[in-house]
C-alpha cells in the first residue's frame, strides 16, 4: 500500500525535475552496464565469440526469452505478476509444431483463442479483485495440461516459413540483435510514449486515481493481459523457429527468467514503474550469462579460479543477487 501512495502524481512530478541526478542516471544505466560486463567477460574467455557468428550462436534463444520478458513486463506494468508465462510459451510451441504445419487454420484459431483467454483472465483478475499470482499459478497448470494434450510426446515439426524467418541472415548485424532492438523500440514506443501506455502504467501505480478519472480498469487489465498473450505467443512461435521441435515442459524456466529479466532491467514489482529497453537488455544479459557458463566449460573467472559445472545454476542466482544489491544501494542513497 505504501508504494502506491509513494508513486502518486507528486512523486512523478519531482522525478521529472531531477533530470541530472547522477544516481538516477546510474540506475537507468545499470541494465546496460550489466550487459557490457557480461560481454566483456565473454570476450575475456574467448575473443572470437564476439563476432557475427558468435552472437548468432549465443543469442539463438535470446529472442524467445526477450519476448517472454516483454510479455511479463506488460503484466508488471499493471502491478500484477504472471507465473504462467513459461507454461504458456510451451503450450504455444506445442500448438505451433503440432497444428500449424498440417492444419494451419486450427493452429491459428487455437493461438487466437489463447490470446482471448489471456485477456479474459485479466478481466477476471480485475472483476473479482483476485491476486494475480494465484490465478496465473492455476493457469500454469491449465496451459501445461493443454500442452500435454496437444503434444503428449516431445517432437513435431516447425512450419517452414517460421524456421526460415528465425534463421534469417541479416548482413553485418546478427538477426537476434536486430530482433531485440526492434522489440525494445516498439515496446518502448507503445508503453512509454503513447497515451495508452501512460494509462496502463498509471493503473499499475494508482488504480483508483485512473479509475476515478474515467478509464475503465477492466478494459486496461484485459488489454494488458491480452498484450502479454500476444507477446507470449510470439515467444512460443520464435522458440519453435529456433529449436524446430516442441515439448510441453520446454519453456517452464521462462516464468522465472522473464521476471528476473524484467526486474534486472529496472522494473519494480508494484507501482507501474517499468523500463522496456532495460527489460530487453536484462533478458539478453541473463541469456548471455547462461550461454557463457554453458559454452565455455569451466570458465576461468580469475586466474586459477574456475566455475565448476554444478555451479552454473548458482552463478545465475548470484548474478541476480549482485545486480539487485547494487540497485538497492543506489535506491537507498536516493531515498
Amino acid at each position: 500500500m505504501n508504494a502506491v501512495v509513494k508513486s502518486g502524481p507528486s512523486k512523478l512530478w519531482t522525478d521529472q525535475n531531477r533530470r541530472f541526478d547522477p544516481r538516477r542516471l546510474f540506475r537507468s544505466a545499470l541494465p546496460g552496464l550489466s550487459l557490457l560486463i557480461v560481454l566483456a567477460a565473454i570476450y575475456d574467455f574467448n575473443p572470437r565469440a564476439i563476432s557475427y557468428f558468435g552472437f548468432n550462436l549465443m543469442l539463438n534463444l535470446a529472442v524467445p526469452v526477450a519476448l517472454a520478458t516483454a510479455a511479463q513486463l506488460c503484466i508488471i506494468a499493471v502491478s500484477d505478476l504472471d507465473l504462467s508465462i513459461g507454461a504458456y510459451v510451451g503450450f504455444i510451441a506445442c500448438v505451433t509444431t503440432t497444428w500449424l504445419p498440417t492444419t494451419p487454420l486450427l493452429g491459428t484459431a487455437a493461438i487466437l483463442a489463447s490470446i482471448v483467454a489471456y485477456g479474459a483472465l485479466g478481466a477476471l483478475v480485475h472483476w473479482r479483485q483476485l491476486p494475480s499470482i494465484v490465478v496465473t499459478l492455476g493457469m500454469s497448470f491449465v496451459w501445461l495440461g493443454l500442452a500435454l494434450f496437444v503434444r503428449p510426446q516431445p517432437g513435431g515439426l516447425s512450419p517452414v516459413w517460421l524456421s526460415t524467418f528465425m534463421g534469417l541472415h541479416v548482413p553485418y548485424v546478427p538477426f537476434p540483435i536486430v530482433a531485440a532492438v526492434v522489440l525494445a523500440i516498439v515496446l518502448h514506443l507503445v508503453l512509454m510514449n503513447t497515451a495508452f501506455g501512460a494509462v496502463l502504467r498509471g493503473a499499475g501505480g494508482n488504480a483508483t486515481a485512473v479509475g476515478r478519472s474515467g478509464w475503465s480498469l477492466l478494459r486496461i487489465k484485459a488489454t494488458a493481459y491480452a498484450m502479454a498473450g500476444v507477446l507470449g505467443s510470439l515467444a512460443g512461435l520464435s522458440l519453435v523457429g529456433v529449436s524446430s521441435s516442441a515439448d510441453a515442459n520446454m519453456a517452464n524456466g521462462y516464468t522465472l527468467l522473464s521476471i528476473a529479466g524484467a526486474i534486472l532491467g529496472g522494473a519494480e514489482f508494484i507501482g507501474g514503474r517499468i523500463s522496456p529497453i532495460g527489460a530487453v537488455m536484462g533478458a539478453l544479459t541473463l541469456q548471455l550469462a547462461t550461454v557463457a557458463l554453458n559454452f565455455f566449460q569451466l570458465p576461468e573467472v580469475f586466474p586459477g579460479f574456475r566455475i565448476p559445472p554444478e555451479w552454473q545454476v548458482g552463478a545465475q542466482g548470484i548474478i541476480l543477487i549482485v545486480i539487485l544489491a547494487i540497485r538497492a544501494l543506489i535506491n537507498r542513497g536516493e531515498a
Binding site: 483476485l130 490465478v135 492455476g138 493457469m139 491449465v142 501445461l144 495440461g145 500442452a147
Partner: peptide, 25 residues
C-alpha cells in the same frame, strides 16, 4: 485419464476456488 487432464483439473480447481472465495475484497 492422463497427466494432461490432471494438470488441467488442478489448475481449474485453483482458479475456481480463488474466484469463489474472492480475493482482497
Amino acid at each position: 485419464l492422463g497427466v494432461d487432464v490432471r494438470d488441467l483439473m488442478t489448475g481449474l480447481i485453483i482458479i475456481a476456488v480463488i474466484t469463489l472465495a474472492g480475493g482482497r475484497r
